[in-house]
Amino acid sequence: MTDLLEVRNLTVEFPTRRGVLRALDDLSFAIAPGEVLGVVGESGAGKSLTGAAIIGLLEPPGRIASGEIHLNGERIDRLRPAELRRIRGRRIGAVFQDPLTTLNPLLSIGRQLVETMQAHLKLSDRDARARARDWLEQVGIPAAAERIGAYPHEFSGGQRQRVVIALALCAEPALLVADEPTTALDVSIQAQIISLLQRLARERGTAVMLITHDMGVIAETADRVAVMYAGRLVEVGPVRDIVRSPAHPYTAGLMASIPSLEHRVARLAQIDGAMPRLDAIPPGCTFNPRCPSVFSRCRVERPGLLPAGATEAACWLQDRHG
């Protein structure tokens, strides 16, 4: 299958008074149609920034220093703002963490859906309204026909997030970038949103980039997982393998530190220390100061992604010839 989104050697930098900070460093990955790619990592790893770079919403002074982003074979990282606006919404939909900041409080949700669709698709008012109602039904808003005229504050948190998903999808984009879509929600509502995302990918062939720090959500929703650490991709592979037999010591530590519902352990495995700050990235592998399996090469030479069983890991332990 040809990939819908392809990110090649993406590097994002922030020039500051004290020098240039490299927030994303040589990132490459791809997403196929109908595939859910989970992007995980701790705060500051660069997950959201990756999403923002793809949507074209990097905040200055952040800029793409090198690398390419291709959507359906077309390069989209060099587009002018007007061209980008056409792609955003029409071909890439976005869902963010807090549904209240995404919705306009002064417009009814029906109006917001109609406006979004008419901005991208040629639709009469009547058709747009009918489709808006369809979308609300699809995302599971009860009594969609009556509630189409309601305002965002009249909905609960979970319903608002569904409205946001409907908004992101109503122009039928091929790619959905969802940045922590369930983090602000309670578990029972979170479960509803997860099944909605899964269904969309399966039934409509939408490619989904799901950014979250919650490994449980990723484990249940994603087909493949990309693990980020300090602006770099450290491991990528099928979700089952990332969860059950991770190859990178960071992924392994991350998995072991998550408390489990199924069994209780006396102590959780912990990774000592913290992720390095962007102005103090260590040479070699960025994880080397915290890594239990560190050896001399890790401190000087940066590892690229190497085949590691079913996954690929940026770790010198996987280098059989070194």
Partner: peptide, 19 residues
């Protein structure tokens, strides 16, 4: 039942309705 779990990759869920 609703808590997403590491041990349940690819599980499709029934889901709880309502708020």
């Amino acid at each position: 039942e609703a808590v997403p779990s590491l041990d349940a990759t690819g599980r499709s869920r029934s889901g709880i309705g309502g708020d």
